[in-house]
Nucleic acid binder design. Structure first.
Lengths: 255, 255
DNA sequence: CGGAGCATTGAACATCTTCAATAGCGGTGG
DNA sequence: CCACCGCTATTGAAGATGTTCAATGCTCCG
């Protein structure tokens, strides 16, 4: 469940735990990182194309998404981020934004100055390696999205996205049984999957009709993991979770 | 011109120069990196899904590509790499391969042991930052590909890919005027653009018909950069080239 | 000359989009 | 409490873009 957070940096530590083993010294350095906590309203740009941020943002609560805007008002959503994610860690080394970052829901974020972050990473190479790893996992997510967009049909694409969002939330403790929050609206899912919202809606009907998922009230429930993963040709390797958190059949589990 | 290379690591230094300013100490550390040079035949897997490489490979000559294999024999090409690129730098921190890496043409590559690389990066944080930056630029390329696959039509997708491949080669000195090598065959371009080779072929005909490009003998010639970039909605920001190497109109230039 | 591997073309078909309308749902003001 | 508003979801029908299948051409090379 969308439980709160204690110390802000703890949320990050928890996320990093899901992708690597963190040394104690690194954890302490992380927890001591200076930061500012901010509440942001939903559907609000955090950084925009062309910006040169001097801080990185960490999601503590809510959903954030990354998108690129096209001519004709079109938009491609590149990725979704949830609590614990560091959506613009990249601005530490890529100084000019080549896309936009925005809140999907209302959010609580922590802002960390690049200078502070650089100083801490210089003293803690292990932590630097972990964050580098995190950004490489981000890239792995992109690769999988490319595969989806390029070679999967709409049904598989949607199924794949659901598998991914479920497991990522599970890895940081945001699921309950086979249910998890699903903040994006249909039009936003469509913009992230290269579909129109009309067609996405039809695909959702099919998934429901086949008894694979249930949707409603911002909650996704996976009714049949095995069948869903099969439709999606889902293989969790690309998530690079430390404990290989992809259950063969996450059927009945009490969280 | 596909010119040769001097010291292997020099090719890498040249590539890194195109994306960042390298300190002298870092450059020397780089040039001193222990490595093995290898000749590889065309269409040959370098590392495969599931592998756990203990070295990273650097392309000195030829083209390399990254792909994921799907059921039904399908394949999605995720990206192409050219001389100077470090296509599996990522394996330094992502221990298990979640996709495949293969040669497109016959290649000369340099192999660098992870242990050696780690040692050098530990002593040269500036170099580590540059390589981190390089991997973030790799991710930026993925993002742009996602945008193409999700929201551009076939014509724009192909045009965009040509703009990208031309500029990337230009950045490391592999172009001559408005021409550059184009190693992928039509079926490979198609697999990277989420199209069938049949449809790609038709799109190429259109591009030729409109006088935007000429293709032949493994050489791409851009006949009208401005029009091509317009069809592609191409913005070079995502390449993150140090000298913003995207010419407004790279019309007549002698290299 | 013959063959292999690509490139090119045609025709029928599938998937997904577009345009447009209707339905549902949650919240607000009277 | 109820009518209304705004936003999202849902549905239908027509059309566009891209696929599939199958055949032919082209070019390089032994």
């Amino acid at each position: 469940m969308p439980n709160g957070y204690n110390a802000p940096m703890e949320m990050l530590a928890r996320k990093l735990d899901s992708i690597a083993r963190i040394a104690d010294a690194d954890r302490e350095a992380l927890l001591a990182l200076p930061h500012t906590v901010r509440n942001l309203p939903a559907r609000h740009d955090i950084v925009r194309f062309g910006d040169r941020p001097n801080q990185s943002c960490l999601v503590l609560q809510g959903w954030v998404y990354r998108y690129s805007a096209l001519a004709e008002g079109g938009r491609q959503i590149l990725s979704f981020y949830i609590a614990g994610d560091l959506p613009d860690l990249q601005s530490l080394h890529l100084h000019r934004m080549d896309h936009n970052l925005a809140t999907l829901t209302s959010c609580v974020v922590a802002l960390v100055a690049h200078d502070d972050l650089r100083a801490v990473l210089l003293k803690n190479p292990g932590l630097a390696a972990t964050l580098w790893r995190d950004s490489l996992i981000d890239a792995a997510h992109y690769r999988e999205r490319i595969t989806s967009l390029g070679r999967r049909q709409a049904l598989g694409r949607v199924a794949h996205m659901f598998c991914e969002l479920y497991l990522r939330q599970k890895a940081v403790g945001l699921t309950r049984g086979l249910s998890c929050p699903l903040a994006p609206k249909q039009s936003e899912l469509a913009d992230s999957l290269g579909l129109t919202s009309v067609h996405l809606n039809r695909v959702l009907r099919t998934l429901r009709g086949r008894g694979l998922v249930t949707l409603g009230g911002g909650i996704l429930t996976i009714e049949n993991w095995h069948a869903l993963a099969e439709v999606a040709e889902f293989d969790p390797t690309f998530l690079h979770l430390a404990n290989n958190a992809a259950p063969a059949h996450p059927t009945v589990e009490t969280v």
